[in-house]
Design a protein around this nucleic acid. Structure first.
Length: 828
RNA sequence: GCCGAGGUGGCGGAACUGGCAUACGCGUCGGUCUCAAAAACCGAUUUCCUCACGGAUAUGAGGGUUCAACUCCCUCCCUCGGCACCA
C-alpha cells in the first residue's frame, strides 16, 4: 500500500488540519470589521453520515473562504446545526434513543467528517438550534411577532401527514405528498399557530428586485410562489336577499359576459343560499360530495368539472341582469373570495363548465383577427381584443376597458381594486416534541398570553414518552403543561405545540456574529456591520422555503429596529446536486458514495479537487470514481514536479534577456494567474480554473524535462512556475499545497500569503499564429510578429503556398483581416 | 398548460463581445518499464474517405442573417427543474 501512493497524503492531511486549528486560521474577532467578508454555508440537519453530494456545498464554501482570505479579507466562515426536526424524533419512536442523544452524536460524527475534508470553520461560533441558549431566542422572536400581531392562532384546515403524524406548511407539501416521507397528505381541521407572512407579501415580492446577485431561477420561483395578481373585488347583490356576494376577478373587462357565478363548495354562504330551493336535499348531497373530495384530489390532476345550481341569482351591477349562482368543484375556497364571476367566452375553465351544464356563452371581447361566434367557438378566447356587447365600453380595446371599468366600479361603488396573493400564512405549529416550544400560556381567567421574557427559554422537558399518537408528547408531561399564570399566579396551561424547524433556521445567520450573547439574541451594532451576508451558499431545494422565511424574519426584525437591513443575503449561490447512476444519492436507492473510503485511498485533496472539477458547480453532475482517480493522478504529478524541481538559482534578473522557451513558460504562468483569478472573482468557475492550472502543470513538466535534457536559463522561470502552481491550487487542495509550500522553503501558512497578481507585460504574445480562412474554411496558418501591419500581413498571407493552392486562378472578392485574430479571403 | 434552465466526441465538460469547435479530465487503443501483471509514464483518439499528404463532415432538427454562427433571428423537437382549476 505504502509504495502505491503517489504522495503521502495520509500523513500530510492530519498534520495541516491540526496546524490550521492551532494557528486559529479561521477564528476571527468580529469586532474587527474592516475588510469583512461573511461567507455562509447553509447549516445542515445533522444526519448520520455525509456523502460526497453533501460535500460539494462545504467544499465550495471552504474554497471561497480560503481564496478571500488570501485576497486580504477578514473572513467569517461559521458553521452550525439545524438540529431540531422530525427524523430524530421518529428514530426515537422506533429505536428508543432520545432525540437529543442521537442528534448530538450525529453532530460529532459530522464534525469529524467535515474536518477530514479539510473544511475549516470558526468553531468558536458554532450554533446548535436545539440547545436552550439558542432556542431561547427563537422563542423570543415568536413573542415579538405575537406582540406585533404577526403570530396568531386559528382553526383551520391543515395539511396532515399521517406518517409523520404532524401538520405541514403549504410549502412542505409536494404534489399532494409530504416533502419528507412522500406519504399522501390529508386535511384536518385543527387550532394552529400561524405567522402572518402574507402581511409582507408585497415587500417580499418587490424586494426581489434588490437581489441582483441572486440566481434568476430562485427569484422566479419565489415570485411565482408569492403569486401576485391585481384585479377588482365585485360586490354582487343577491336577488331576493339582503346580502352581497364578493367575487375577485383579474378580468373586470369581461363583466358583461358573466353568465353565471361559481362558489367553492366550502363557501360560508352556501347553506344560506340553498335553503328553501327546489331540491334542497339533493343539492346538499351534491355539495357534500364535492366537499369530500379532498383538497389534494382536487389539485392533483384536472378532474372533471362538477357543479350544482343553488336556485339563487345575483344582479350584475352593470346591466341589472339576473345571473345564476352555481356551486362548482373547480373553485378554491382559499384563493380570492372563494367565489368567481364566470365568463365562459373568455375563460377556459368557465367555458368547460358552461358546455357541460349548457349555460349561456356570451362574447364580449372580440378577436380582431377573426370575429368570434359564441355558438361555434371550440375554446375560450383569453387574449386581448375589442370590446363588444358591453354598452358604453364597446369599441375600446380590452386593456383600456379594463382600467375604465375598474374606475367606473369604484366610482359607482360596485366594488374596489384589490391585489391577491397565492402566498398563505405560514403554519408553524407542530404537534411534536423535538422542536422549540411555543412560548404561550393559557389561563382560564386572564386568557392567552406570552411567556414573560425573563422566563424564557421555555425548556423542553427531557423525560418524555415517545408514542406514535400524532399528538405532542408534551401534552402528557404534567410538569410541563401545568404552570402558573404570569398575571394572576393562578393555575394555567402551557401551549404544547412546538415550532416548525424553519423558524429556527430563519435567523441563525444573525446569531453567528455574537454566538454567546445571553441577554439579547444578537448584538445589533455588530450584526449591522457584518450583514447582509456577502456570500450565501446552499442547495436549490431551499429556493422557496428557507430563503423566503429568512427574508420575512429579517424584514420583521428590521421593522422592529433589531437590524438595519431588510434583505439578509447579498449574493446567493445555489450549487447543483451530485448524481450517481442517474439519481440523487440516497440511502434507499443504495447509490450513496461515502467520502470515507475515498479519503482513505486517495486523500481529501483528491475528493475536493474532483468535486470542484466535475463540472460547473451550479449544475447537477454525475459522480465517477474513475474521474476522482484522475484528480489523484494530477496531484501526484504536481507533487513530483515540486520534488524534482531543479535547484533554483534565483529568478532571472528583471530585464535580462531570456530564452524563448523561458519566455513562453513565463507567459503561461501569468496567463494562468489571470485566468484563475478571473474565474474565481467573476463567478464560481472552479472547473475551468482547475483545467487552466492543469495546462500550466503540463507545460511546466515539459519545460522541466527539456531543461533537464539541455540545461539553459530556465531554472528561474521554472521556480516561478512551480511556486505559482502551488499558490493557485491552494484554495482547492489546501493540505498538499501547504506541504509543498513548506518544501519550497516558505515559513508561514500558504493562506497567510498574498494571492499573486499577473504581470501585464509578461502575458503579451509577441508572435501570433493567425489562422487563414478561404471562403470561411480554415486553410492555413501564418506565424507573424504581433505588431505586424495589416498590409504586411496581407502580403504574407498571399505568399503562403497553402493559401495559393486555394486561390489560384480565382478573383479575390474580399480580404477580411481581424487584427491579431484571423484572416478570411473570399474568392470566386 | 405556464415559467425557468438546458441539448457540443464513447463520457464529464471547454469556447471571450459572432472569429482556429471539441481545451482540461475520464474512458478506449497503442507504446515504455516488467519474467508477467498492476501502478506510473509517453503517444493517438469527432465521424467518414485516404498508405499517406490531405479532404469531406459535425455543436438536438430545419430555415435565416453574415465574409464568418455552439454563439444572433425564426419555426419545431427533446430533457431537467419549479408552479399548476390561483379566477
Amino acid at each position: 500500500m505504502e509504495d502505491e501512493r503517489l504522495y503521502p497524503f495520509n500523513t500530510i492531511e492530519p498534520k495541516w488540519q491540526k496546524f490550521w486549528r492551532e494557528q486559529r486560521l479561521f477564528n476571527i474577532d468580529t469586532k474587527n470589521t474592516a475588510n469583512k467578508y461573511y461567507c455562509l454555508m447553509m447549516f445542515p440537519y445533522p444526519s448520520a453520515a455525509l456523502h460526497v453530494g453533501h460535500g460539494r456545498n462545504y467544499i465550495i464554501g471552504d474554497v471561497v473562504a480560503r481564496y478571500k482570505m488570501m485576497r486580504g479579507f477578514n473572513v467569517l466562515a461559521p458553521m452550525g446545526f439545524d438540529s431540531f426536526g422530525l427524523p430524530a424524533e421518529n428514530a426515537a419512536i422506533k429505536g428508543g434513543i432520545h432525540p437529543k442523544t442521537s442528534t448530538l452524536n450525529n453532530i460529532s460524527t459530522m464534525k469529524r467528517q467535515l474536518n477530514q475534508w479539510g473544511v475549516e470553520y470558526d468553531w468558536d461560533r458554532e450554533v446548535i438550534s436545539c440547545l436552550p441558549e439558542y432556542y431561547k431566542w427563537t422563542q423570543w422572536i415568536f413573542v415579538k411577532l405575537y406582540e406585533k400581531g404577526l403570530a396568531y392562532k386559528k382553526k383551520a384546515f391543515v395539511n396532515w401527514c399521517p406518517s409523520c403524524k404532524t401538520v405541514l406548511a403549504n410549502e412542505q407539501v409536494v404534489n399532494g405528498a409530504c416533502e419528507r416521507c412522500s406519504t399522501e397528505v390529508s386535511q384536518k381541521e385543527l387550532e394552529q399557530w400561524f405567522f402572518k407572512i402574507t402581511a409582507y407579501a408585497d415587500r417580499l415580492l418587490a424586494d426581489l428586485g434588490k437581489l441582483t446577485e441572486w440566481p434568476e431561477r430562485v427569484k422566479t420561483m419565489q415570485a411565482n410562489w408569492i403569486g401576485k395578481s391585481e384585479g377588482v373585488e365585485i360586490d354582487f347583490k343577491i336577488d331576493g336577499m339582503d346580502r352581497t356576494l364578493k367575487c375577485f376577478t383579474t378580468r373586470v373587462d369581461t363583466i358583461y359576459g358573466a353568465t353565471f357565478i361559481a362558489l367553492a363548495p366550502e363557501h360560508p354562504l352556501v347553506n344560506t343560499l340553498i335553503k328553501g330551493c327546489k331540491d334542497e336535499a339533493g343539492v346538499l348531497k351534491a355539495i357534500q360530495k364535492m366537499r369530500n373530495e379532498s383538497k389534494i384530489e382536487r389539485s392533483q390532476a384536472e378532474i372533471a368539472k362538477e357543479g350544482v345550481f343553488t336556485g339563487r341569482y345575483v344582479i350584475n351591477p352593470v346591466n341589472n341582469k339576473k345571473v345564476p349562482i352555481w356551486i362548482a368543484n373547480y373553485i378554491l375556497m382559499d384563493y380570492g373570495t372563494g367565489a368567481i364571476m364566470a365568463v365562459p367566452a373568455h375563460d377556459q375553465r368557465d367555458f368547460d363548465f358552461a358546455k357541460q351544464y349548457k349555460l349561456p356563452i356570451e362574447v364580449v371581447i372580440d378577436n380582431p383577427k377573426e370575429s368570434l361566434n359564441a355558438g361555434t367557438m371550440k375554446e375560450a378566447y383569453t387574449e386581448e381584443g375589442v370590446m363588444v356587447n358591453s354598452a358604453q365600453f364597446d369599441g375600446l380595446t380590452s386593456q383600456v376597458a379594463m382600467k375604465k371599468i375598474a374606475d367606473y366600479f369604484e366610482e359607482k361603488e360596485f366594488g374596489k381594486k384589490t391585489t391577491q396573493y397565492k402566498l398563505r400564512d405560514w403554519l408553524i405549529s407542530r404537534q411534536r416534541y423535538w422542536g422549540a416550544p411555543i412560548p404561550m400560556i393559557y389561563c382560564e381567567k386572564c386568557g392567552v398570553m406570552t411567556v414573560p421574557a425573563e422566563d424564557l427559554p421555555v425548556l423542553l422537558p427531557e423525560s418524555v414518552e415517545f408514542r406514535p399518537t400524532g399528538e405532542s408528547p408534551l401534552k402528557f408531561v404534567k410538569d410541563f403543561v401545568n404552570t402558573k399564570c404570569p398575571k394572576c399566579k393562578g393555575p394555567a396551561a402551557r401551549e404544547t405545540d412546538t415550532m416548525d424547524t424553519f423558524v429556527d433556521s430563519s435567523w441563525y445567520f444573525l446569531r453567528y456574529i455574537t454566538p454567546k450573547m445571553n441577554d439579547k439574541p444578537f448584538d445589533t451594532d455588530l450584526v449591522n456591520k457584518w450583514l447582509p451576508v456577502d456570500q450565501y451558499i446552499g442547495g436549490i431545494e431551499h429556493a422557496i422555503l428557507h430563503l423566503l422565511y429568512s427574508r420575512f424574519i429579517t424584514k420583521f426584525l428590521c421593522d422592529i429596529g433589531m437590524v438595519g437591513f431588510d434583505e439578509p443575503f447579498k449574493n446567493l449561490f445555489t450549487q447543483g446536486m451530485i448524481i450517481k447512476d442517474g439519481a440523487k444519492m440516497s440511502k434507499s436507492k443504495g447509490n450513496v458514495v461515502s467520502p470515507d473510503a475515498l479519503i482513505r485511498d486517495f486523500g481529501a485533496d483528491t475528493v475536493r479537487l474532483y468535486t470542484l472539477f466535475i463540472g460547473p458547480p451550479e449544475k447537477d453532475a454525475e459522480w465517477s470514481d474513475r474521474g476522482a482517480e484522475g484528480s489523484y493522478r494530477f496531484l501526484g504529478r504536481v507533487w513530483r514536479l515540486v520534488e524534482k524541481r531543479p535547484a533554483a538559482k534565483g529568478r532571472a534578473a528583471s530585464g535580462a534577456k531570456i530564452s524563448k522557451e523561458a519566455e513562453d513558460l513565463k507567459r503561461k504562468v501569468h496567463q494562468t494567474i489571470k485566468k484563475v483569478t478571473e474565474d474565481l472573482d467573476g463567478g464560481f468557475h472552479f472547473n475551468t480554473a482547475i483545467s487552466a492550472i492543469m495546462e500550466l502543470v503540463n507545460e511546466t513538466t515539459d519545460a522541466m524535462n527539456a531543461e533537464a535534457a539541455t540545461p539553459g536559463d530556465g531554472a528561474g522561470v521554472l521556480a516561478e512556475a512551480i511556486e505559482s502552481i502551488v499558490i493557485l491550487l491552494s484554495p482547492f487542495v489546501p493540505h498538499i499545497a501547504e506541504e509543498m509550500w513548506q518544501s519550497l522553503g516558505k515559513e508561514n501558512s500558504i493562506f497567510k500569503c498574498k494571492w499573486p497578481s499577473y504581470d501585464k507585460a509578461a502575458i503579451v504574445e509577441n508572435v501570433l499564429t493567425i489562422p487563414v480562412q478561404v471562403n470561411g474554411r480554415l486553410r492555413s496558418k501564418v506565424e507573424v510578429p504581433s505588431d505586424i501591419s495589416e498590409d504586411k500581413l496581407k502580403e504574407l498571407v498571399l505568399a503562403d503556398p497553402k493559401v495559393n493552392t486555394w486561390i489560384s486562378g480565382k478573383a479575390i472578392k474580399k480580404f477580411i483581416v481581424i487584427p491579431k485574430k484571423l484572416v478570411n479571403l473570399v474568392v470566386q
